[in-house]
Design a binder for these strands. Structure first.
Lengths: 200, 200
DNA sequence: CCCACGCCGTAGACAGTGTCTACTGGCGCT
DNA sequence: AGCGCCAGTAGACACTGTCTACGGCGTGGG
């Protein structure tokens, strides 16, 4: 490390803090550099373009989400597969609702460089979700469904849609009532629907 | 009308064409004015701010989506409720995949003025989906589920997530195979899951 | 008849953005 | 010691959204 923490990491840090506190609109290149205490040209040494910096910040988000899920998995390793799926679902939309700015950044296909990533091993951004998806496929497969991959995909889409629409404000508006309890009902409804009634 | 079509409408027109052909990133205020053949200050007479213009364009998107759905409903008025729900689902993600730019604009809570809309009757943007949601609630209610509103909300979220994740590129990457057929399988999986097995 | 008012669109200024290009200062290497 | 390299600086450039002052036009009242 250079100064105790390389500027590259510091830029991602302040970007993550900034998107958490102010939202995606505050993620200007110059603003990030300002809060990192460097001049506006400095980030260019580490990220060729603004989009690549945002991609790195989004990658941090995916990493934290994956960390939450794997922690969950490590803790409740001997629960039923179905309970694990439900826990993952709650963690997914929980993360989205606790970090709305980061979550929206993570899935903004504009802003994020969709084309080739640097050959330095970093996978392309939209492949960051593949390991999580693989885990989901394995778990729903152990729940005894016919086609695990398509069921897992449909379930993931359901969780993602709940997170997105709820955060957007239209779903709570349609359902009314308390915020926190309804979103859990939706997650449970999704898991129950795709994994069958309520057995086990 | 002033010149054959008021500038207000023309601005929304070119915005819709622009977002369809170039994506949300091309929706600059000056760019829209340029393509409409007016100076960059002209839009300000009709829209107080850039966001309000984008909101008007997004409203156009919601209107077209609603138009497709109501046309579908009018045509197949005597199908089973379930088939109508499935048709609506396909129309929803079909619209999203055919108009990815407009669809992403419609649900970008930043960009869109979340606060009070002009008192001139125009409802706030995120309430534009309420009539469609109401229709969905009615239809799933006629399918004999216990809690129509929560089931309808979960199903809507599922469709929305399919549209979003598929357009994002991660779902097709996970499932592989053909593009067009898989997304229909996902829509069918969603409808079947939330409405029960495959009866009638 | 004509003048004054209101409104639509123009043109320019202003702060701010992302990218690009010189340039500087300090470090390690031969 | 001298040299090169590289992270960070500083300024320019084109562009953006917003604001303000200014024309030009039609309409209505005296």
């Amino acid at each position: 490390m250079d100064h105790e923490r390389s500027l590259r990491e510091r830029l991602i840090d302040v970007g993550a803090e900034l998107v958490a506190s102010e939202g995606t609109g505050a993620l200007g290149l110059r603003e990030i550099a300002r809060r990192a205490g460097v001049s506006h040209g400095a980030p260019r040494r580490h990220f060729p373009t603004h989009h690549s910096l945002l991609s790195a910040i989004a990658r941090r988000g995916f990493a934290e989400l994956a960390g939450r899920v794997t922690a969950l998995e490590a803790a409740a390793a001997q629960s039923t597969p179905r309970e694990r799926v439900r826990a993952i679902g709650r963690a997914y939309v929980g993360y989205a609702l606790e970090n709305p700015g980061m979550f929206s950044l993570m899935f903004r296909h504009d802003l994020l460089d969709g084309s080739g990533e640097a050959p330095s091993g970093e996978p392309r951004l939209r492949e960051s979700t593949l390991p999580l998806f693989g885990l989901l496929v394995a778990l729903v497969g152990r729940c005894g469904v016919a086609e695990p991959s398509v069921t897992a995909a449909a379930l993931w889409a359901n969780l993602h849609g709940v997170a997105q629409l709820w955060g957007w404000g239209s779903l709570p508006l349609a359902l009314g009532e308390d915020p926190a309890t309804d979103v859990e009902r939706l997650v449970d409804a999704a898991v129950d629907a795709h994994l069958g009634g309520a057995p086990a």
